[in-house]
């Protein structure tokens, strides 16, 4: 069996989704941890320092390439799977199957994913592109080093109520996407022991609530002036 055969089989395609999905989950951990520095309430000192480390160190930069690769693979494979799976039933049912045994969000991963993609485009435009390419105002850290003032960028961006609302919607989509994706990924890589499955599903639901909630609280915190 060639690798091509492995990854073009129906389980192989899912494996791609699962492996990229799990790496994106890991990235979320880093991302949420780093951003949580805004709540240090030190005028962004700690956050900017951390952001600068991620932006200037070579290891995260290499990982970033991998991250983007993963995201695009996840997106493309996800869309392709959706289209292929839909094509397997040319004539649909007159009466919809409904919710028995499955949650609406588990059947709506493509829609949730699309919402997330739209959100990401906005998010990249607001933060990632300025910090990489078009430039961000500098600020001097307490050790005298001059770095991008991403903290200020966040503060300014999140003064707009619409942006905050869009971010909250994006985070809700993320939550539901994770609620299915987290445990589904582990099933796909073959975890079938009932004990671990129970643990994974508990952790998965927890993760799907806590992480998106933390992200959502960031724009809200700025907008409501909880941090300054």
């Amino acid at each position: 069996m060639t690798w091509k055969q492995v990854f073009t089989s129906s389980i192989g395609k899912k494996l791609v989704m699962a492996i990229t999905g799990i790496s994106l989950i890991l990235f979320l951990v880093v991302h949420v941890g780093l951003n949580a520095c805004i709540w240090a309430n030190d005028g962004g000192e700690m956050f900017n320092r951390a952001a600068n480390f991620m932006g200037s160190n070579v290891v995260p930069r290499i990982l970033e390439v991998g991250l983007f690769g993963g995201i695009f693979l996840h997106i493309i494979q996800g869309y392709m799977l959706t289209v292929q799976n839909r094509s397997k039933r040319s004539i649909g049912y007159a009466v919809d199957y409904g919710n028995r045994g499955s949650k609406w969000y588990s059947r709506s991963m493509a829609i949730l994913g699309t919402l997330l993609l739209l959100f990401f485009i906005m998010h990249w435009k607001q933060f990632w592109i300025p910090s990489r390419f078009t430039g961000v105002d500098e600020v001097q850290l307490s050790n005298g080093k001059s770095v991008h003032n991403l903290y200020a960028l966040m503060r300014d961006t999140f003064q707009n109520l619409w942006v905050v609302i869009l971010y909250v919607i994006g985070c809700i989509s993320l939550g539901y996407h994770l609620a299915h994706g987290f445990q589904s990924a582990f099933r796909t890589i073959g975890v079938h022991n009932n004990r671990y499955n129970k643990m994974i599903s508990a952790v998965g639901y927890g993760f799907a609530v806590i992480v998106p909630l933390a992200f959502a609280m960031m724009p809200v915190s700025f907008y409501l002036g909880w941090v300054n």
Partner: peptide, 9 residues
């Protein structure tokens, strides 16, 4: 047949 997405139906 299609691929599984673990919905549980």
């Amino acid at each position: 047949f299609g691929a599984c997405t673990n919905t549980g139906a």
